[in-house]
Amino acid sequence: AMLSSTAFADPHPDAELIIEGELHIATRAEPPEHLGGVLPEIYSGWLFRTDETRELQMDDFDNPGMLFAERGEDRWELAEGTANQSCADCHGDVESMAGVRAVMPKVNENGELWSMQNYINNCRTERMGADAWGWNSEPMKDVTSLISLQSRGMPVAVKIDGEAAEFWEKGREMYYTRFGQLELSCANCHEDNWGRMIRADHLSQGMSNGFPTYRLKNASIVPLHQRFRGCIRDTRGESFAEGSQEFRELELYVSSRGLGLPVEGISVRQ
């Protein structure tokens, strides 16, 4: 085996993400100011994947995540609950959700930091009189995939000041905390060592703009909090729960590191 370290280093130098030969999605951007120069440029995780994996995302027919969004369309129209209403009854065409994914998570009118899943479940329980969907459940994956797709190509634009500031600070603190028996922080892998190999894995900058992601290894959509759980597990650490306050704060902070990178809607990763 060739073990030259430079052979593995860095994201793909010039690959361009163009979907169906027409929709151009930037995978490189100027780093947000709050990063204070710790990253020279910000990169989508797409640039760190193999040719084969990258190609799957360039064609909606090949992208297995699109099947989830398709199922999401049926769910969007399905009347449920004591109110016997569907998402479409109130929100109309799902295109009305354009831009929503790009600003999640965000502070709601009661001052709480909510992820998209929280907004959806609030509609289900408070407005439809239906059961909440589990964070990693199939219907939640389907509908979040569909809604995210409406923001495809729109730059991540989470708000981090005002009421969001205290949540953002906590997320930032978590990002630099060395969890678990291996004492590894998110920054150890994704800020200090992106571009390097950790065994067979090519480390990206751990950006969240591609989520929800279709992960080949799981053969399913992987929501962002499930990815967080996997990364903390790999530190031999005790994870937080998907949907927890901690993970929503981390979601806000991680999203803010990718401010300016376009939402990929449903990305494909290995």
């Binding site: 678990g180 759980r229 650490g237 005790e238």
Partner: peptide, 14 residues
């Protein structure tokens, strides 16, 4: 000596 040590690679508490 650790922050949230887990039980090996289970993501559960030690």
């Amino acid at each position: 000596d650790y922050i949230r040590p887990g039980e090996a690679y289970t993501a559960r508490a030690y």
